[in-house]
Nucleic acid binder design. Structure first.
Lengths: 203, 203
DNA sequence: ATCCTTCCCTAACAAGTGTTTGGTAGGTTA
DNA sequence: TAACCTACCAAACACTTGTTAGGGAAGGAT
């Protein structure tokens, strides 16, 4: 069989996860392109070349970081969407789940926010496009159902509303630090309160 | 005087502005670090080295793009803040002004969003930190005044509210395209309606 | 004692990076 | 006509980049 022979090495998955975690931190802090493999190796306490025992490229590092995150994210989302909740309750559950994911995958979310648009252009990262479409479908659909059953206002541009809700949730990853004053659930509660009812005092 | 002698050349300011505009587009599309000077030169129809007749570094290009944008932004903001409006009207004016700036400086805003955190670490870009602090002061102060005079809800974490309002406005630069269906003022109106009154239908 | 596997190091590579230097075509001024 | 200025090109520079190849130390298995 004259296929490509992978080198006969078997790095431990735990070590890989450790290295991916530190790589994710550096990517999130410096940006993917601005991050050199030497910088990652530094943070991991080894030399640049040694990373290639565990990964075959810098690109597959960010690939694994993002795909792992998205897999977990969709586990949560699919569970919510399958629960058959009313529109408003669905939005509440999705937002809460999102903040939990930000809590668990802060670095990955930050990377996703910054780099996904660029990466999505490459065929290798097609799953980013797929995920984004699925994402839009879920949120837009829920909002539309909510307008139909009079949970949500009908006088707003629905796409504008979608982007509004989506962005307000995910940009939180840029400033959120786990272990802060507020739990993910508390932040979700306040965000939902603002998004649903507004910050103005009705008089 | 044994100081550094600048080369005795005088590029035209109009050509500089043209080149900065194309550079800003490329920076916004590809990211600052991922953008090579050869790519900018390509887009401008010249060779990489020729850019150095007009600018002395890639860094001073992004520097000039951002500082020009911030100067104009603060002209608008300062006018609003000096008008002595009530809190709610101040917020409305600031948001509207922000969307006008996004309309005028779409590329610069996108660059600012993506790169400012990184750049702010360098002494050369200290003005980014200054601007961000002034920004926070203006918005937080207005929100606090609004809570005091019962324009805004008092049951929300004020810093969370600040980040919420700030982010919802500026992330729009990532998807906004001038000449679209909605004018900046129309987008501002809808955003304000959502932020102030929420997307839920009060029943 | 030998072998094998895991994990990292040393040292280099080719390609790409921002930048510099010297030159030059074409227009304007003297 | 000569001098000059603007705006660019051509070609190289020093350096950084991601990546590879070969080797070796440690430890468990045989």
């Amino acid at each position: 069989m004259p296929t490509k022979k992978k080198p006969q090495v078997t790095p431990s998955p735990e070590r890989r996860r450790e290295l991916l975690a530190t790589a994710a931190e550096v990517f999130a802090a410096q940006g993917y392109n601005a991050t050199t493999v030497r910088r990652i190796a530094d943070a991991a306490g080894m030399l640049a070349g040694s990373l290639y025992y565990h990964f075959d490229s810098k690109e597959s590092m960010i690939d694994e970081i993002l795909s792992t995150f998205l897999t977990e994210l969709w586990e949560g989302y699919d569970a919510v969407l399958a629960a058959g909740l009313a529109p408003r309750q669905t939005i509440e559950a999705l937002v809460t789940e999102s903040f939990r994911e930000i809590d668990r995958h802060r670095a990955a979310v930050a990377i996703y926010q910054k780099e996904s648009r660029q990466l999505a252009a490459q065929p290798r990262f097609q799953y980013l496009v797929d995920s984004q479409q699925k994402f839009e479908k879920a949120w837009l659909g829920t909002l539309e159902r909510g307008v139909a059953d009079h949970s949500f206002r009908a006088d707003l541009d629905i796409r504008l509303t979608y982007r509004f809700v989506r962005d307000t949730v995910w940009v939180a990853a840029s400033w959120y630090r786990p272990g802060g004053l507020h739990s993910p659930e508390e932040i979700a509660r306040q965000y939902l309160s603002m998004v649903l009812d507004g910050i103005a005092l009705d008089s």
